[in-house]
């Protein structure tokens, strides 16, 4: 699975904006963990805020608040809602 760098990821979504998960890249524990927390294909996500030091970010997904590092957010490909 070759990564296409131009894909928009969750990391690029500005605070306050919403998007829909298109695909998750990567494998293993981190990917499974992200999916287990509800970020699966087709899920609507809102970026709520960025932590005071610039990382991690806070999302609203499936009705609850989830915090995720930017590194991990970069594995989530998204499209506009």
């Amino acid at each position: 699975m070759a990564e296409v760098p131009v894909e928009k990821t969750l990391k690029d979504v500005p605070v306050g904006a919403s998007c829909v998960v298109k695909k998750l890249t990567g494998t293993g524990a981190v990917k499974r963990r992200i999916m287990d927390m509800g970020l699966t294909k087709g899920t609507r996500v809102t970026v709520r805020k960025v932590a005071p030091l610039g990382d991690p970010i806070e999302l609203t997904v499936r009705g609850y608040e989830l915090s995720i590092r930017k590194d991990e957010a970069a594995r989530v490909e998204v499209e506009d809602a």
């Binding site: 991690p56 989830l66 915090s67 995720i68």
Partner: peptide, 12 residues
Amino acid sequence: GEPAPFVMELPD
């Protein structure tokens, strides 16, 4: 190893 994933719930 990789840093532990920081995919964490912020509970109410």
